[in-house]
Simulated scan of single mutants.
Amino acid sequence: MKYLLMIYENEKAAEALSEAEVQRMLGEYGTFTEAIQNSGHFVSGEELEPTAAATTVRIRDGKRLTTDGPFAETREQLGGFFLVEARNLDEAIGIASRIPAARTGSIEVRPVREFPLPQD
């Protein structure tokens, strides 16, 4: 089963890191990513641009409304994700607990709903 591991952190705190701290964190992410690739759990993963680059889209009364930035003001912002293949929720949680940002932010683990593909 696939699980989306969403990485939430405080953007302002991340922006305040020194260059040495950023390089250390990038090294930890590289090590983590290599480990889940080698274990066969890795499907995909990306870092996202800051929330200032986001646009929220809504349709209300048939009209498209756009707002700069995220919809909700929160203390932690979605900064990236890993899509992994895991046997069950416990295994996905184990993988999520190894993501470096779990120490300073939070990781939301959510099963991916898989729909059967239509047969030709």
Rank of each mutant, 00 (worst) to 15 (best):
residue 2 K to E: 12
residue 2 K to H: 11
residue 3 Y to S: 06
residue 4 L to F: 11
residue 4 L to P: 09
residue 5 L to K: 10
residue 6 M to N: 13
residue 8 Y to I: 00
residue 9 E to A: 13
residue 9 E to T: 15
residue 13 A to T: 11
residue 14 A to R: 15
residue 17 L to M: 14
residue 17 L to I: 08
residue 18 S to L: 05
residue 18 S to A: 05
residue 19 E to M: 13
residue 20 A to I: 05
residue 21 E to C: 11
residue 22 V to L: 13
residue 23 Q to L: 11
residue 24 R to T: 15
residue 24 R to C: 02
residue 28 E to K: 13
residue 28 E to W: 08
residue 29 Y to F: 15
residue 29 Y to D: 04
residue 30 G to F: 01
residue 30 G to H: 06
residue 30 G to V: 00
residue 32 F to P: 06
residue 34 E to C: 00
residue 35 A to I: 08
residue 35 A to W: 06
residue 35 A to S: 14
residue 37 Q to F: 08
residue 40 G to R: 03
residue 40 G to S: 11
residue 41 H to K: 09
residue 43 V to S: 01
residue 45 G to Q: 05
residue 49 E to A: 14
residue 50 P to S: 06
residue 51 T to H: 06
residue 55 T to M: 07
residue 59 I to G: 01
residue 62 G to R: 07
residue 63 K to S: 04
residue 63 K to Q: 14
residue 63 K to G: 04
residue 64 R to V: 15
residue 64 R to Q: 05
residue 64 R to F: 00
residue 65 L to A: 01
residue 65 L to S: 06
residue 66 T to P: 03
residue 68 D to S: 14
residue 70 P to W: 02
residue 72 A to G: 00
residue 72 A to W: 08
residue 72 A to T: 13
residue 77 Q to E: 07
residue 77 Q to F: 06
residue 79 G to Y: 09
residue 79 G to W: 07
residue 80 G to V: 07
residue 82 F to Y: 15
residue 84 V to Q: 09
residue 85 E to V: 01
residue 87 R to G: 14
residue 87 R to Q: 13
residue 89 L to M: 15
residue 90 D to Y: 02
residue 92 A to T: 07
residue 96 A to R: 02
residue 98 R to A: 10
residue 99 I to S: 11
residue 100 P to S: 02
residue 104 T to G: 03
residue 105 G to Y: 03
residue 107 I to Y: 03
residue 112 V to M: 11
residue 112 V to D: 03
residue 113 R to K: 07
residue 113 R to M: 11
residue 118 P to S: 09
